[in-house]
Design a protein around this nucleic acid. Structure first.
Lengths: 223, 223
DNA sequence: ATCGTCACTGACTATTGAGTCAGTAAAAAA
DNA sequence: TTTTTTACTGACTCAATAGTCAGTGACGAT
């Protein structure tokens, strides 16, 4: 039946991973299919055996990226129980994921954003994908807040504004990554994040004084 | 001496403005010099009489953009005296400038950011320009805070963290614009900004109760 | 052994777009 | 009017690259 067996699924994964890498370094427009093929160790023609176009390949690569982020986040949150600590872990994970340790991540993020903004962008008609991705994280955060309220750890009043607050936090986090990236050592990420967490910790818990915030930060962030 | 008189300076401005418009709609990579020439109502060759390359033209267009932003912001702040109201005006102006009223603005911003992130980007070696632009706004904001302290309106303790706080606010504002752009009506900008301003107004002034924050917001934002 | 099929290749085509430059026009100077 | 200088033009070159396809070879089936 199949004279030359190849694990198509595995190879698709490899090509997608190579594409993700190249796209993250060059951006969609500047990345060439030849470069992606080279990164995957195959010829250009082969790429087209697995994907019908550069555009489809890009979308697939982005989907993988989003999926990996959410899986890793969920995994990390599984190990934490206390609501405030969960919140801090969420923030820490988001920051770390977009930090220097993952150099390509930011490139990809900007590319996604630009491609969904421009009329001619690949994501112009697929903005909803980017939105889903943002709303996904926001949902996780809202749940952390509501869980904190229902367990009697956070102020009851938080429940009313949980989504507004979660959205606010998300906006800050993404803005912080952006500023850190551009202004580099003019934006002290640990200092900024700590400052913000201290602010949150001052009005979220019913009994703020029960928490040693600096200790929690030291425990959860930049270990 | 000069047989055919043309105001070179004026024409340079026109070309730069046309370029800014096209770049903001297409992004750097996808914008063509032909399109820019057409937008300026001239032939491609003429563009090269005024700028030696697409790259130089892009940088010039961005510089104009940054300058216009700062000038307009400074102008707006001149009309406001009260420190908290100045802060709210600053926030309002930043938000409005990046809102739907200025559709191209966001396109340009993302382009700047991406071009300064990517190794191959036009701004890769000119990241400092983008940084200067961000630090410029931050400086204005820091001065508003310090002015508020020295006039005895803001808590004295703010002075110690003025720059950290200003940086925090900037991060939030840019993150908010970003989220608003992507998630559209899932991100209620007035609600989010009001929420954030109320938070600031609760710990910045020495006498928070003296201010009717909702009234100030209604006065200064989305008039 | 040889045949058929799948996986892959990379030279090729077609297109796009940055940058050039010989030529044109227009206006002031002579 | 003729000459000279400047401004501008747009067809051209050249390089890059998305996508194609005829050909190659590897491997299992017979």
């Amino acid at each position: 039946m199949s004279p030359k067996y190849v694990d198509k699924k595995q190879k698709t994964k490899e090509i997608t991973a190579a594409a993700l890498h190249v796209f993250s370094q060059k951006g969609y427009a500047a990345a060439s299919v030849d470069q992606i093929a080279a990164a995957a160790g195959i010829a250009k023609g082969t790429v087209y055996e697995y994907y019908p176009s550069k555009e489809k390949l890009y979308v697939a690569a982005i989907m993988v990226f989003v999926q990996e982020f959410e899986e890793a986040l969920t995994l990390r949150l599984k190990t934490v129980d206390d609501p405030l600590l969960r919140l801090i872990s969420f923030i820490g994970f988001s920051v770390e994921f977009c930090s220097q340790e993952n150099p390509g991540v930011i490139g990809i993020l900007f590319d996604i954003l630009q491609q969904s903004m421009l009329d001619t962008g690949v994501f112009a008609k697929k903005k909803y994908l980017v939105r889903e991705m943002m709303l996904g994280s926001r949902k996780i955060l809202t749940d952390i807040l509501l869980d904190g309220v229902s367990r009697g750890v956070f102020q009851a009043s938080i429940a009313r504004n949980a989504e507004t607050l979660a959205t606010n936090i998300m906006a800050f986090l993404d803005g912080a990554s952006l500023h850190h990236l551009i202004t580099e050592n003019y934006f002290k990420m640990p200092q900024q994040i700590s400052h913000y967490i201290r602010l949150l910790a001052s009005f979220l818990p019913k009994t703020p004084n029960e928490y040693d915030v600096d200790e929690l930060i030291a425990q959860s962030l930049w270990r």
